[in-house]
Amino acid sequence: MFDSIITDNTFYEQLLRSDGNLLKSCLVLFMALLISRVAPLSRHLHPIVWFHQFALLLSKKVNHPQRSAQQQLIAGIMATTLLVIPIWFIIYFILSLAAYPWFFDFLVLYFCISDAGFKPVAKDVISALEHGQKGLAKTYLSPWLMQNTASLSEMGICKATIERLLISPSYGTVATILFYALGGTPLVLLLHLFKQLEHCWPNYVPQYRYFGAAVYWINRIAFAVPQWLWNLTLVLQGGLSNLGAMFKKSKNIQGVYGASSLYLGAKILQIELGGPQKMTIGNAEYRVSITKINPSRVPTIADVRNAISLTTWAVTFWLSFTIAIPILWTALRWVQSM
């Protein structure tokens, strides 16, 4: 028995020496994912909201839709560089010099998993609608959406809530896991900043079509794999009969990030999504035409609940995946040492 204890101690010492950094990174990632869901940061206190405000203020100054497409594109690239590079460099510098880099890794990852805080909001929206408080439901939704929520009907509120539930985990949870594995916290932060700029300058809005084109194409390439993986997870949760919907290209929502997730979610939930949106840009209000996805039955409060259930189980799969990797790795090392 004493020999067994010595052997175990030797194994764990060797494991920590050879794979300590890997196991620590997995633990930091898992804790960030877990705590972001157990204790999500209020939207009003989230640093991303401040970043959004800076991006919108800068775009008001330098985005001039009446100018040529090339001038708008150049202005957008310069604005993107001005917003992203200084923030990324400062945080990268802090991470490089920090005495406890794992703590700052955790903080950055926690802030980057920005989709985690929306599930409680979706539940609050359901509660408000059930009590006939449509205005309160719009207030809950407003900080999370670029579109103007003031004129949304109950059906519009349900659509907007479901769409956010279906799209955000692909660039929040899934992308964070994948990019952290590929390039660590600096890569997660860099691409998350690009993603947030797309929220501020949506490509499907005419005023940002050229100004935000560079950001849109960077995100389209960078987030292609996370989005595909998220769609696969939705299929696993929603039924393999929907597998064919993953490979059908939606022609109706050009420029909208997560179009394939919306199409897949609409098929799984058997509801209609998409449709025109109203945006307030500067002091003017614009109506943006977006064709309806899977025109059929309009969503109800029950469908919002189904969307919460679908996406919760899908996210749980990725949480389980992050903790399963170090466990399986440790088991393999144990077998190898025998």
Rank of each mutant, 00 (worst) to 15 (best):
G258Q: 04
L136Q: 11
K24T: 15
H52L: 10
K292N: 14
N63E: 03
A55K: 05
M155F: 06
A99V: 13
L23Y: 12
M31W: 11
P47M: 05
I162D: 01
L332W: 12
W217C: 03
V62N: 00
C112I: 07
L73C: 08
C26D: 10
A181F: 14
M246Y: 03
Q336W: 05
I301H: 01
K195R: 15
Q207K: 15
H192Y: 07
N283K: 10
M146K: 13
P326K: 02
F89V: 14
V121G: 01
N219G: 10
V215N: 02
V49N: 10
A331Y: 13
G274H: 03
V49I: 13
Y210S: 12
Q66D: 10
N294R: 06
D19M: 08
L23H: 10
I77F: 12
I268D: 01
T176C: 03
T81M: 13
T80L: 01
L240E: 01
W50D: 06
L191G: 04
A224K: 11
Q72A: 05
L45A: 13
G212Q: 06
A55T: 03
L262F: 02
I91P: 06
V121T: 13
L193Q: 04
G135Y: 01
Q71D: 15
L97A: 15
A284R: 15
P186E: 06
L193F: 12
Y92P: 08
T139I: 13
E154D: 07
T312G: 10
F11N: 04
E272C: 09
I177K: 00
W201K: 08
V38S: 08
S260N: 15
V188H: 02
G265F: 03
F89G: 02
F11S: 01
V205R: 07
N203G: 11
R43E: 12
G265K: 05
I177F: 03
T322L: 05
S337A: 14
M279C: 11
A137G: 02
M155Q: 14
R333Y: 02
H199V: 12
S320L: 15
P86T: 08
T161A: 07
A122K: 01
L310C: 04
G172N: 02
F93P: 00
V215W: 08
S309N: 11
S170K: 00
L58A: 09
L145D: 01
P276L: 03
M146E: 13
A137S: 04
W230Q: 01
F2Q: 11
M279N: 13
Y210H: 14
V298S: 15
V205N: 08
C26F: 14
L328C: 11
I268F: 00
L243N: 03
I221R: 14
L41H: 00
L109F: 06
R297D: 04
L262H: 00
L97D: 04
A39I: 08
P326F: 07
T81P: 06
S151P: 02
V235N: 07
W144G: 01
G172Y: 05
R37Q: 09
N294Q: 13
Q277N: 11
Y263L: 15
S18T: 13
F118D: 00
K61L: 15
V235Q: 03
S250W: 09
V174T: 04
Q133M: 12
